[in-house]
């Protein structure tokens, strides 16, 4: 059911992704605030198929030189490219005090045993400002290989960015700043250099009382 309805290809599928802040020493859900969250563990045929976005509409929001989105897409495979529009939840009640942990967790699954490399590039006006590269090994569980990046510390740039964003008095001002803030994640097979997933993230601030929201799109080139 997940094919065409979620972020994934027959080789690698995103199961969960979240960016959060948490009061250390009390790792229960009550003290954890999710800025953004994708959970793709309970998909059914009732879920809608993903809409598509022409990748050329967002080229300039991501690095355009060597290794940029255009070059990546031309190399393909095109079914590995996705766009996520996040409505981030900045409405946290957790006090920002020493000891608060800012983290990112993600989980992927695959029928294949690989070593994967995950690159996350934070971009401002389409230009990369910081990159994190992580390597993950597979763990066999319930008939498939799981790749888990657990509680990866958020970089200082992002923490400061969130702080400054939250200081803005109006949501439209936050959205205006977020218009030029994007993140590009590229997951490759470390040993073959094959691209497994490429996820482009763009943002607005959530106005919902139900926390972070998102839409997922396939990136296409007609």
């Amino acid at each position: 059911a997940w094919q065409g309805r979620s972020i994934g290809t027959p080789k690698l599928r995103l199961v969960e992704f979240m960016a959060f802040m948490e009061q250390q020493g009390e790792p229960d859900a009550y003290n954890k605030h999710l800025y953004v969250h994708i959970s793709q563990s309970n998909l059914s045929y009732n879920d809608a198929l993903l809409e598509s976005v022409d990748v050329r509409q967002i080229y300039d929001k991501f690095p355009e030189k060597k290794g940029g989105l255009k070059e990546l897409y031309e190399k393909g495979p095109p079914n590995a490219f996705f766009l996520v529009k996040f409505w981030a939840d900045l409405n946290t009640s957790i006090q920002d005090e020493p000891g608060v942990f800012y983290g990112v967790s993600s989980q992927y699954e695959s029928p294949e045993n690989m070593t994967i490399t995950c690159s996350s590039k934070v971009c401002s006006f389409g230009k990369q400002v910081v990159e994190k590269v992580e390597t993950e090994y597979a763990r066999f569980e319930n008939g498939r290989f799981l790749y888990r990046i657990h509680r990866s510390p958020m970089c200082e740039y992002l923490i400061n960015f969130i702080h400054k964003l939250k200081q803005l008095p109006e949501k439209y001002m936050m959205n205006s700043v977020l218009e030029n803030f994007t993140i590009l994640q590229v997951v490759t097979n470390r040993d073959t250099q094959e691209l497994l997933l490429c996820i482009a993230y763009v943002f607005e601030v959530s106005t919902s009382e139900h926390g972070a929201q998102h839409h997922i799109y396939r990136l296409v080139k007609d």
Partner: peptide, 24 residues
């Protein structure tokens, strides 16, 4: 930063791109 980008609102994007879901 660059100031010459076309605003997202003026790009060809699905209507849903501007509609925040009511719940996840």
């Amino acid at each position: 930063g660059r100031q010459d980008q076309v605003p997202m609102r003026k790009r060809q994007l699905p209507a849903s791109f501007w509609e925040e879901p009511r719940s996840s």
